[in-house]
Write a protein that binds this DNA or RNA. Structure first.
Length: 566
RNA sequence: GUCCCUGUAGUUCAACGGAUAGAACAUCAGCCUUCUAAGCUGAAUAUCGAGGUUCGAUUCCUCGCGGGGACACCA
């Protein structure tokens, strides 16, 4: 990375090293931020130097203050106890950072590309089931991670692995045939199927005798019964149509979609090989791999009736990924409840001699105030229902503000506002925290939300529409402290991208964007732009157009479509 | 029982081992003859407990307490 912020820090490190002597390792020079703005722009704790040089940290800070001379980005330094605070040169910083953003445009923040080819598997829904808000967390998180990885210079192949076979399909089709045959079909057939699946689960719950009937359906499906296969194909298409619609809304894209149905047979073959090689063994009629010596208990690879399990199929999927797509690494985004399974699964691959880089990125699931969502209890919040609700609310708010807009524009803007609210809401929480879904909160458009970011961009657009920056910029005109703060924050963007990718945590980006937008809002409120003196105005317009660029780059990475106005 | 996540303000969340623990929502008090008030400013309120490591612990380690989840025929 040759970004300005990196150069600034490098310059500071060199200055410190020069002042204290070569025995100071630059790696140990930490650069942070002071607690108060008026103390300085960057801060260096001096404890490490103190230990090395056998002097008090306060003394070293003082010495550094006296030795550091203004050069390049560094304007001056102040000591405060054991800390050295650096004040950056406003003009130089503004010039370098703003020109950099302006020049790189939508590429600003992107990192040097490396050769590693990574497959990211995410979403992984089942057909014949309802797609609820919990599934949307995975799709939203995955889509943004794919964006972030690409922006961070990785070669990414986003894929989806869909559960199109198994007992859930049998249950759904059984209920469809038994209770809904010849019924007129609604427009959204995928959602209709999901409802029927829920009904099937509840009926079987009430009368366990019915399980026999669904088992029969499953056997027919597995044996390739023509009638049931035809029904399966037809209904699978319904689910896929619905999923495609949802993915369009969520900006979730896939280069390849794998289906469980295509890896079932190859999976069984692998299990048979494992048996021959003595890696897997029979236990109570089923095939298992004993992982007790790794403290991972036992993983079931095949059911006692010979039918496949998730693990069976996934063995084949892993091979398919590396053999056919020539990837260096495979990442799977699946909720944390499968964490133990993945430990077992990866260990199994290792024992098999399948020595590849595979990683499970866990995240916590979405629950409701009164407990987890389940088809059994019927307390599912379907994504589409929730989405409609948010759109409706956005519409009401938009109409209130823009009586002159036509229906089409209102609808379009409202939909985008709704989606930005939903996506941001799912991303703003750290992956390792459970989201307790609260409709009230999810419907909010105020504060730390997607619409707030959109609104900030709209306000910038509104100014730039009236006048855009032209000609030579006098960066000395950006002398306000709020301006310096904004510029410094904007300069941090590439570092945020790096961190976000490294930690698989888009919430870091969400938080950063909010902070940047917040700084702008404050600036906007207090500093007139269009009404300022000519040269100052030019500089300020240039500043805000670049702040907008950073906001747009960041929001886009979250998978959110940027609005022109709202 | 073993393993994973988690415990911070009334609520939902932040805080590479660093200075006075930050936001948002809700509450209260202000700000629209000024570039979009979906905004801005201010007030008030918090680290589950006990040890340990460290110059320094919300963060790391140990133990305890509380919440959620996973652990053989679901995915």
């Amino acid at each position: 990375m040759d970004y300005t912020i990196i150069k600034v820090k490098q310059q500071i490190k060199e200055a410190v090293q020069k002042a204290l002597g070569q025995e100071i390792d630059q790696k140990h020079i930490e650069i942070g931020v002071p607690p108060e703005k008026d103390m300085g722009d960057l801060a260096i704790p001096c404890f490490y130097f103190a230990k090395l040089l056998r002097l008090s940290p306060n003394r070293i800070a003082e010495e550094l203050k006296n030795k550091i001379r203004p050069v390049g980005f560094i304007e001056s330094a102040n000591n405060a106890g054991p800390y050295l605070n650096i004040i950056l040169n406003k003009k130089v910083l503004a010039q370098k950072v703003l020109n950099e953003i302006s020049k790189k445009g939508e590429k600003f923040g992107s990192l040097k590309s490396d050769k590693e080819k990574i497959m990211i598997e995410y979403s992984n829904p089942n057909t014949h089931k309802e797609f609820h808000i919990g599934h949307s967390r995975n799709a939203i998180l995955g889509a943004s991670l794919v964006n972030v990885y690409k922006f961070a210079g990785k070669k990414v192949i986003p894929v989806n692995y869909i559960g199109d076979i198994g007992s859930h399909v049998a249950k759904c089709l059984w209920a469809l045939e038994k209770f809904h045959k010849d019924e007129p079909l609604p427009e959204n057939k995928g959602k209709y199927l999901g409802g029927i699946y829920g009904e099937a689960v509840r009926r079987i719950d009430e009368n366990t005798e019915l399980k026999k009937e669904t088992d029969e359906v499953q056997q027919k499906l597995e044996s390739g019964d023509k009638y049931w296969m035809a029904l399966w194909k037809k209904t699978k298409a319904w689910s896929m149509d619905e999923l495609k619609e949802i993915y369009k809304l969520l900006n979730a894209k896939f280069d390849k979609i794998f289906f469980e149905s295509e890896v079932e047979k190859p999976g069984k073959k692998i299990v048979a090989e494992l048996m021959e090689r003595g890696i897997a063994e029979k236990s109570q009629g089923a095939v298992v791999i004993n992982l007790e010596k790794y403290n991972l208990r036992t993983l079931l690879l095949l059911k006692s009736d010979g039918s496949s399990l998730y693990s069976t199929k996934e063995l084949a999927l892993a091979q398919l990924k590396f053999d056919k797509y020539k990837i260096d690494k495979s990442i799977v985004i699946v909720d944390n409840r499968q964490g133990f399974y993945f430990q077992q699964f990866f260990k199994t691959l290792e024992i098999m001699g399948f020595d590849k880089k595979m990683e499970h990125i866990p995240y916590e699931f979405v629950t409701l105030k009164d407990g987890a969502m389940s088809s059994r209890s019927g307390n599912i919040v379907p994504f589409e229902d929730f989405f409609e609700k948010v759109v409706e609310l956005a519409k009401a708010e938009t109409q209130k503000r823009h009586q002159d807009w036509n229906g089409e524009k209102i609808s379009d803007v409202s939909q985008k506002i709704a989606l930005s609210a939903i996506k941001f809401n799912m991303i703003k929480t750290n992956n390792s925290n459970i989201i307790v879904f609260d409709v009230e909160e999810a419907l909010s458009f105020d504060g730390f939300t997607g619409p707030y970011l959109q609104y900030t961009i709209s306000r910038i657009n509104s100014i730039l529409k009236k006048e855009s920056p032209k000609g030579e910029i006098d960066f000395a005109k950006l002398e306000n402290l709020l301006e310096k703060e904004l510029i410094l924050k904007a300069s941090n963007f590439p570092e945020i991208i790096a961190q976000c990718q490294k930690e698989n945590q888009p919430s870091i980006l969400a938080k950063y964007l909010f902070e940047l937008a917040k700084l702008f809002s404050n600036y906007y409120q207090n500093i007139p732009i269009l009404k300022s003196e000519q040269e100052t105005k030019k500089a300020r317009l240039f500043l805000i157009s670049n702040i907008r660029q950073v906001l747009i780059n960041g929001i886009s990475l979250l998978g959110i479509d940027v609005l022109e106005e709202m």
